[in-house]
Simulated scan of single mutants.
Amino acid sequence: MNVLIEWLYRSPKGLETAFRSEEMAAAQALVIAEDLEKTGRAKNVQFVDRFDSSWTVKELKSYLKGIETEPHNITVYFDGGFDQMTKAAGLGCVIHYDQSGKSYRLRRNASITGLTSNNEAEYAALHLCLQELEMLEAHHLPVKFFGDSRVVIHHLSEEWPVIEQTLSNWADRIEAKMKTLGIDPEYELVSRKANTEADRLATQALKGIEITATIER
């Protein structure tokens, strides 16, 4: 989670002014805030997250301690494949995360029917990733999503409008799930080469090879 620090500075002569920092990682912000408090001149120190929620130093300490045993530092790779002949879709999902001092990689794929295009399969793959995050009980965290679909990445980052109704429905489902989980998404378009693992999982799903595995990295 990234936050801003807000505090009131009081000079030895009693002059006061308010300050607000740039956005930074919560752990870094906590260290700086505690250092500010040691000066004796910083009053009403608080943190503000991307949802405009305010946190006290005590609350942020408690939060950071709590997530040590929950999934955090999460990055997600997704890819969807679609077979025009059979109308079958393969979905690939790779999730990297830290938990309890260890790092893990989760791989999951799925095959589904009823879709109409490769773009729809890409959206479905991202939705599969969100379902996996929900099962991991990941919530109220920033998450980086990497995909090689220009349509999905640019649509969800609001760089392109969503015109096709079917894709708009998928975008609505994804954004609703993000809100429910409290996930603050960051999207990045990557090359197919950089998305090889998710692509391979989607291809394997189209071939009927199901994979669900989590390993420690």
Rank of each mutant, 00 (worst) to 15 (best):
I183K: 00
G92A: 05
L30K: 06
A138V: 08
P71M: 05
L201R: 01
C93I: 02
E186D: 03
E197Y: 03
G90L: 08
L91D: 01
M85A: 15
R107S: 07
K207R: 13
Q99T: 10
L64C: 09
N2P: 02
H139C: 11
E216F: 05
P161W: 04
G147N: 04
N118W: 02
L181C: 09
D52C: 14
A125Y: 00
S53A: 14
I183M: 05
I5S: 00
Y77E: 05
E188N: 12
A121R: 01
I153E: 02
S62L: 14
V152W: 02
W170K: 03
E34T: 12
S54L: 13
T17M: 11
A125G: 10
T116L: 10
N195M: 12
A27V: 12
L206R: 03
G80T: 11
I95W: 03
A213D: 05
K13E: 15
P142G: 02
L189F: 13
A194R: 11
L36Y: 09
L126D: 00
T17Y: 13
T75C: 07
T17C: 09
E186Y: 10
W7K: 01
E22H: 11
W160R: 06
A89L: 10
I183L: 13
V48M: 07
T166G: 00
Y97K: 01
S149Y: 13
D52A: 14
Q84A: 13
G182P: 12
G14F: 01
E59G: 14
I67C: 05
Q46D: 04
F82L: 04
G66N: 12
A18N: 11
D35S: 15
E132F: 08
L156F: 02
R10V: 09
Y63S: 03
H96A: 06
H140M: 06
V3R: 00
E34W: 04
L15R: 15
M24P: 12
K144F: 08
R192H: 11
G14H: 04
F82A: 02
L201W: 00
D172I: 14
T212I: 01
G81V: 03
T166M: 01
T203L: 11
G92L: 07
R105T: 15
G92D: 04
R217S: 06
T86P: 08
P185H: 10
L36K: 07
T214P: 01
A110M: 10
H155N: 15
Q84C: 02
Y104Q: 04
A138S: 11
G40L: 06
S117M: 07
V94Y: 00
K38R: 15
F19E: 14
Q84H: 10
G114H: 09
H139N: 13
D52P: 05
G14L: 09
R108N: 03
E164W: 01
L8Y: 07
A121C: 09
A18R: 15
A171M: 03
F145I: 03
I163A: 07
A42D: 02
S149W: 12
M24W: 06
K65M: 14
E70M: 07
L36W: 06
A198V: 06
E122C: 04
L64P: 06
E37H: 06
V151P: 02
K13L: 13
V3Y: 00
T166F: 00
V162H: 02
D184K: 11
N2G: 01
W160I: 09
D172S: 12
K102R: 15
N44A: 12
N195F: 04
Q84L: 12
E37K: 13
Q131F: 06
E186I: 07
D199C: 08
F51W: 13
I5D: 00
G81E: 06
